[in-house]
Each structure stands twice: as structure tokens, then as C-alpha cells.
Amino acid sequence: MATTTAPGLRLSSLPPATGRAGLVGALRSEFTKLRSVRSTYWTIAALFIVSVGIAAIAGFAIANSIHNNPANKASIDATQASLLAFFEFGQLIIAVLGALAITSEYSTAMIRTSLTAMPRRGTVFAAKLIVFTTVALIVSLITSFVAFFVGQAAMSGSGVGASLFHSVTIPRNAIQQGPTGPVTFSGTIVISPGTVLTAIIGTALLVTAVALIAFALGAIIRHTAGAICAVIGLMFVLPIIVAVLPNTWRWDIMRFFPDAAGRVLTVTIGQQNQHLWSAWPQFGVTLIWAAVLIAVGAYLFRKRDA
């Protein structure tokens, strides 16, 4: 490292410049940034292990409880059981990745180097958004499907479950004659493969949308801890605050919050909350939140001093 002599500037000449620096180069650059830091891999690994691991545990727990008491077979939403951890914890973990995609540039001051190399900020922001959305979506879809299959495998043989390939019929109600008496079931619920597929994909999309909300809050707040706190506030604390409001009208408010979609998207046994819209309109609400926050983030990213 002790080269004190004058550096001989013998660099090969560059190919002649054509066109101008634009989105394609920015996309390549942002992908390099994302794949070249360890936090990306740690976060994705944590997302996968937590989501799939808890799906397996939940599957075993269901199988065990049915083994102990057959009455527990009634109205088991096996799909939701496999996706719940991915939805509840996964959205938090991927929110960290989303926030970091922007805030790590500010915490390390890399943003100044990035914007010196590529001063067209709209392009930089768009490239970040596209690369992050693509990665988050792929990771979410894979995690969602794997969590489902692992969760189902864990509860196989228990008499309940869900399948992507055929309809599954489970009992609706259980009546037990005395504490240890025989169990009889009445009514059935038919879970179609289409419903299951909708839940798996819908949950992955919802988790991606939450990741985008985190990304946008990262652009607005420019501080990792601040952005993650804001996501937790929006997705977890706000619903609790609203939950203490009078039952007569709180649902009219709750359906406008980004977390509400989670209450309907993961459900496959037809017990949707009557106060909320159906799955896709409710997901639309979350998407609108993401879109508005991203627009604000993009505006501030362009307008503020870096």
C-alpha cells in the first residue's frame, strides 16, 4: 500500500460515449448495490426461516391438537395457519429490507456519491423502486408458497388441510357429547384450490406492498430506525389504537388502513369480516397507501438537499 511515487495515469481509453446515462444503467447499479451488502441476505434469510419455520410449527400444533381432541377439526383454516407467520412477522422483516434500501444510503452518506455519479434523481429513485419491488415480490412469492407447502406437510394425516390441486372438505361444526364423549360433526366447508391460490399469492402481494410502504417511509424519513418505527406504528400500533373506538363505527375507519387487507386476504374458509371489503378491494387500499407514500417519498427525494 506504500506507493508514494506519482501514480502513472496509464488508463486505457474509454469507448466513445453514445446516448446518455439513464434508467438501464441505474437499474444495473441498484441491483449491484442490493446484492453486494450482507444485510440483504441476512434479512431475506430471516424472512424465510421465520415464515417457513413457524408455518411448520403451526402445522404440527394443529395436527397435535386434533390428535388430542378430534373436535378441533372443525373450521380449521389450514391455509391461514401456514401463512400467518409470513404475514405477521414477514411483513416486519421485509419492511427492514425496504427501509434499508434507501436509508442505508443516508446513514453511510453513500447517497452523495450515488447522486454525484447519477444526478438525475428521478431516475435513481425509479431504479431503486423497480429493483427493490422485483426482489421483494420474488422473495415474497417463494416464501409464501414454501411456507404453505411446509405447513401443509406438517399437518398431513391430521384430517384437515388445504391443497392447490384439489378441493378439500372439512367439517364446519363439532358437537361433543360430554367432556370425553364421542364427537359428531355437522355441516361442511369446501376449500377450493382457487381460494387457496388467491390466499398464497394475495399474502405475498400484501407483504410486498408493506415492504413498499417501508421503502417510501425510508425515503421520507431518511433514517433506518425512524422508518421502521413508522412502519410498525402504521401497521401494528394504529390498528390497536383504532380498536378501542366504539364498535359501532370503528370498522368504517379500519377498512381504510393498510393493515386491514391482512384480515381478509389470508382467509380461505369464508368467514370474512363483514365490516371490511372483500380481499382485492381491501388489498387495493393497502396499495393506495403504498402509492401515495411512494409519491411523497419520490417528491422529497428530488426536492431536498442530499
Partner: peptide, 23 residues
């Protein structure tokens, strides 16, 4: 600012992500 880099990224990848922006 020489310290305006992401410390978790290797020197090579740091320069690569800059080079890519300008093709």
C-alpha cells in the same frame, strides 16, 4: 467525502455500482 461509501460493500462492488450508472 472519502467516507461517503457503504462500508459493507467491497471496494470492487462500490466502484462497479458507480461505473454502471454511467454505462
Amino acid at each position: 467525502d472519502a467516507k461517503a461509501v457503504h462500508g459493507g460493500r467491497s471496494a470492487y462492488n462500490h466502484l462497479l455500482c458507480l461505473a454502471q450508472t454511467n454505462n
